[in-house]
Design a binder for these strands. Structure first.
Lengths: 122, 122
DNA sequence: AAACTTATTCTACATTTGTAGAAGGTAATA
DNA sequence: TATTACCTTCTACAAATGTAGAATAAGTTT
């Protein structure tokens, strides 16, 4: 099961807030905000799909993610890589660094990260 | 406008072949292959969306991509980055290298690539 | 207790997506 | 030229998606 595009957007807000009432989530949206019922519908669908859980507090619910952003993304990206880059993360990585505009600072940071990973491999 | 998941899959085959008749595309699929009409429907929708063009040859068409895989992906990835990583490619990159399992060789390659990019920035 | 606020569920509906049969066209072939 | 092989378009339809009004429920305030 997967989230749709708009559900992903909402999920992302929820990841940011960690825990939130419907009202809080609605606030995250830029104008023009969607109708509150729209958010509710999405939350219900996401709860049905087991992507969010909630605790009932009075007449409302405090929602929280049931999957971490990290694990959600690993799948997501791996699917992408599988589909478009012959299942080769390396191919994807090189495409990525070539096609996105990273600043020098970001490149340095990334380089350091890679060196650290190389170290750990030994 | 965007391609749907299945359209993307078909597009990916087309990128691989560069030019192809419906028959050729159908062959790319693993068993159980979809119905030929299904592929035709998708091709028509993709043509309507201006993602593929074609040359008529007799009673059939030779299809070809109207957008390169590279540019399609830049958008795709940038959307992803915008949505989930605060619009920060660096954040995404570090997430990526941490979460995917790159081999030492791939890491080395990536490091070299980054160094080259750093050089060019000067 | 009445009125108000706010959230949730039900219902609804237009679009998009995934699939494919039926019908109709052209080129090659028997 | 009748048949065969393919292809494309038309039509269809179920499921998923994007949105949101109406109805309902439960605290909150007056």
């Amino acid at each position: 099961m997967k989230l749709s595009k708009t559900e992903e957007e909402l999920m992302n807000h929820l990841w940011g807030l960690k825990k939130a009432f419907m009202k809080d989530l609605l606030e995250e949206y830029a104008e023009p905000k969607p109708a509150a019922t729209t958010i509710s519908t999405l939350l219900k669908r996401m709860a049905d799909k087991k992507f969010v859980g909630y605790e009932t507090k009075g007449n409302m619910r405090e929602y929280y993610p049931l999957v971490s952003k990290d694990s959600y993304f690993s799948n997501h990206i791996n699917g992408l890589i599988k589909n478009f880059f012959n299942d080769s993360p390396g191919q994807f990585a090189s495409f990525f660094t070539k096609k996105t505009d990273l600043s020098s600072a970001e490149l340095e940071e990334l380089k350091a990260l890679i060196e650290k990973q190389l170290d750990q491999k030994k």
